[in-house]
Structures are given as C-alpha cells and as structure tokens.
C-alpha cells in the first residue's frame, strides 16, 4: 500500500489503485489506528451522531452562554430559515442555522465533536447533515463524505496547522470549510480533482482570516464564522463542480495559508488583543464579563 503526505499524493494513489478517495483514506486509517474498516465506520457513526445532536439542539432551545453573547441566535436564524423568504434561499439559511446551533451548544457547555477544533465545530456538521437531508444520501454515503473531509483535514494538520493560536481563524474555520467542501463535492458525485479544487478555492476565500474572539470566549465572531464558512464550503464546492479549476494546486494553497498564519501578529491569533476583540465595544463586553480587561 502506498503512503500519502499531500492531497496530490492522495489523488495519485486513488487513480493508480483505482479506488475512490474515501477508500484510500480508509486504508491509511486502518494502518495508522490498527483497527478494522468496520470499527472505523462505527467510530465515524458515533461522531456523526454527536454532530447531529449538536446541530439540532439549539434550533428550538435557547442555550445559556457566558455573557449571553450568542444565546438564542440559532433559534432566531432557524425561525427565519423556516419562513423560506431568505435572500440565500431556505437551504443555505438552514445550513447557517445548523452551524450556529453547534457553536451555541459548544459555548453553553454542551457536547460537540471538534472538527477540526471545538471553535469550528459547526461547519462540517451543517454541510453534511443538510446535504444528507436535501439529497437523500444513505448514512453510509454520508460517512464516506466524513472520511473524505477528515482525510483532507489530516493532511492539512500535518502540512500546516489547525490551531487558531498558530494560524488564526483561517486555520480553524477555514480548514473546516475546506474539509466540508471536499465532502460536498464527493457527495454530489464530483471527481477527485473537483474535490481538490474545492479545497483550494475555499481556503483562498478566507486566506488571512484572523482569530479575534471577544473576551477570549468562543462565541463572537466564532458563531458568525461557523455560519459563513459553512456557506463558503458549499459555494466553493459548487464553483468546483461547475468546472472552476484552481490555477494553484491545493497543497500550495495549504502552504500559503500556513505561511500567512505565521505572518499574522500574535494579537490576531486567539489572544483577544486585536480585531473584533480589541474594539471599544469588544473590550467593554470583556470588562463587563470578567470585571477586568
């Protein structure tokens, strides 16, 4: 069995061994974790169930969060989405509601599955669950999508970073979007190349996005970024499915994202010392919550 260390490698192995991309990732996982394919699918299923629960829990139930910065935002969005009058259509509005739900559940000490991090835990569930509902995929197929997403995520984790403290929000919510885009392309029947292009496009779309949480809490603008990066994943998948090719290969875009992350000053990497956190109001909110700045 051949090893991969990049997205390019994964695609090459998939072609050479005439296996779907998810199978290449599955083979590798069986080797790394020393467990059977069946066991891997069981673990994926368990995580998918946690994601489903988190993506629906706050739709109808307001959750108490410290400072109440995002308490109830999901419910409001869900009511709006249900009316079906949204500018982005009801599908994207529901996607955003699900992403917000995960963020609200996370901020209120509910159970979530980090994907790739707790702060970015809403993007992948929102995209996968909404596509499963819209297109009527089997659960097995949805889990194959989850495999594609996490295989891409593992490569990015190895070659770059998924930590906000190291790479900013682009490394957390941006990478989540790239993972979800690749899964969406796979689920919609796109080619491996299209999936790879969607990774490149989604990361380009949020290159340089900073991590600037008010009061250091995983609430604002994290919840908003989960909603918007879920949409980024879907629009990038659509661009790739339509035939847009990224002139820069995805591995080079991943590298660029990493370098940009390194160039970002520490004030913009999860320290709450810049961006939205450093605004007059952001600081006032922090002071109100903690009694100090």
């Amino acid at each position: 069995m051949q090893m991969y260390n990049s997205i390019e490698d994964m695609l090459r192995i998939s072609e050479a061994e005439n296996k779907p991309l998810y199978q290449v990732i599955l083979d590798n996982e069986a080797r790394v974790s020393e467990i059977s394919e069946e066991e891997i699918f069981k673990r994926l299923e368990k995580r998918y169930q946690v994601m489903e629960e988190a993506a629906s829990r706050a739709l109808t139930e307001e959750r108490k969060t410290v400072g109440s910065l995002i308490t109830g935002v999901t419910k409001i969005q869900y009511e709006y989405a249900k009316k079906g009058e949204g500018l982005c259509g009801s599908f994207l509005n529901i996607v955003m509601a699900r992403a917000l739900s995960c963020s609200e559940v996370n901020a209120s000490m509910g159970k979530i599955c980090a994907a790739p991090t707790a702060g970015a835990c809403g993007i992948l569930p929102a995209v996968l669950i909404s596509l499963e509902e819209k297109e009527g995929f089997s659960r097995r197929k949805a889990l194959e999508g989850l495999l594609v997403a996490s295989g891409i995520g593992a490569v990015i984790m190895k070659n770059a970073t998924v930590a906000g403290a190291e790479g900013g929000c682009q490394a957390e919510c941006g990478v989540a979007a790239a993972m979800a885009a690749a899964a969406a392309v796979y689920l919609k029947g796109g080619t491996n190349e299209m999936a790879a292009d969607s990774v490149a496009i989604s990361l380009m779309n949020c290159m340089g996005l900073v991590c600037d949480p008010i009061a250091g809490l995983v609430q604002v603008p994290c919840a908003q970024r989960n909603a918007s990066q879920a949409v980024n994943a879907l629009l990038s998948a659509d661009l790739a499915l339509a035939g847009m090719k990224s002139p820069v290969p995805p591995d080079e875009v991943v590298d660029a994202m990493y370098r940009v992350g390194k160039l970002l000053p520490y004030q913009l990497k999860e320290t709450a010392l810049g961006g939205i956190a450093k605004t007059k109001t952001g600081q006032a909110i922090a002071k109100e919550i903690f009694g100090k700045e």
Binding site: N5, E29, V50
Partner: peptide, 16 residues
C-alpha cells in the same frame, strides 16, 4: 499519513 483522522474529527467533548 501518520495522523489519524480521529485527531481531526474529535475529541467528542463538552465545550467550549
């Protein structure tokens, strides 16, 4: 690839 997909997809935890 020596990183497990479950390092990317997880942990399942209580937030935040």
């Amino acid at each position: 690839m020596d990183i497990s997909i479950f390092n990317v997809l997880g942990p399942v935890m209580i937030g935040p």
